[in-house]
């Protein structure tokens, strides 16, 4: 599903964010990328959604070489990837339902499909009774669940979550991780970027640890060992 081969990303003038990073993620895997702040985890995420392009090396998603992807092809890539960030990027003027529906509207999905899919994904994240609430009327965990629902509307094969529990308490963190596990159980590949030790240790899935822009360990059923 994901294949990074000797990828280096340098920001001008000469800040190296990641250096010779190589790893592969198989379809259906749940992988956590861990590390302290500034170790290049988010840069890897940006490369996977083509927000940034690699300076060297090769990035492939589902066999598609996106190392030098054209700007016009980026929307097609992103429709196949569900993305969740710590800063929710919810639209405050829209309800939970509208925020999720918006993701389908802007890619030209028919209205009938929108009215079918949106309640489904809101149910998956357990917000079926709060569809008409505005983001300000939702708790941090609920708002994050709306973001997850929005990321699910395209039924992505790959789900990327960059610090999705960064602003949440323990209870809400647990709920979000449960939802990610549930998404993974449907067959979706999940990549979780986090520096939350407890989350990683409880998951007991594959863990890739990064430090100073390089991969320092890659373990099946790994733990947060930094």
């Amino acid at each position: 599903m994901i294949n990074l081969h000797n990828v280096t990303k340098t920001y001008p003038p000469n800040t190296v964010a990641i250096k010779n990073v190589s790893f592969e993620v198989k379809p259906g895997e749940f992988v956590s990328i861990v590390g302290q702040s500034g170790t290049g985890k988010s840069t890897v995420m940006k490369l996977l959604i083509a927000e940034e392009l690699a300076t060297e090396g090769q990035v492939k998603i589902g066999g598609w070489d996106i190392t030098r992807i054209r700007s016009a092809a980026v929307p097609a890539l992103r429709r196949q990837i569900g993305v969740v960030f710590q800063d929710l990027k919810l639209l405050p003027s829209m309800t939970a339902y509208e925020n999720v529906a918006f993701a389908l509207q802007v890619v030209g999905a028919p209205s009938q499909r929108i009215s079918e899919v949106v309640p489904q994904v809101l149910k998956i994240v357990g917000l079926e009774d709060k569809t008409d609430r505005y983001p300000i009327q939702l708790s941090g965990g609920e708002a994050q669940r709306v973001v997850i629902a929005r990321a699910l509307v395209h039924r992505p094969k790959l789900f990327l979550a960059d610090e999705p529990t960064g602003n949440l308490d323990t209870l809400n963190t647990r709920e979000i991780i449960d939802i990610l596990t549930k998404i993974n159980s449907f067959g979706t590949t999940v990549v979780l970027v986090t520096h939350n030790r407890e989350v990683v240790n409880q998951l007991r899935r594959r863990v890739i640890a990064m430090d100073h822009g390089e991969i320092i360990s890659d373990q099946e059923n790994g733990k947060y060992t930094l």
Partner: peptide, 9 residues
Amino acid sequence: VMRLVGASN
């Protein structure tokens, strides 16, 4: 948000 969810330019 539009860019993130794959809306065309």
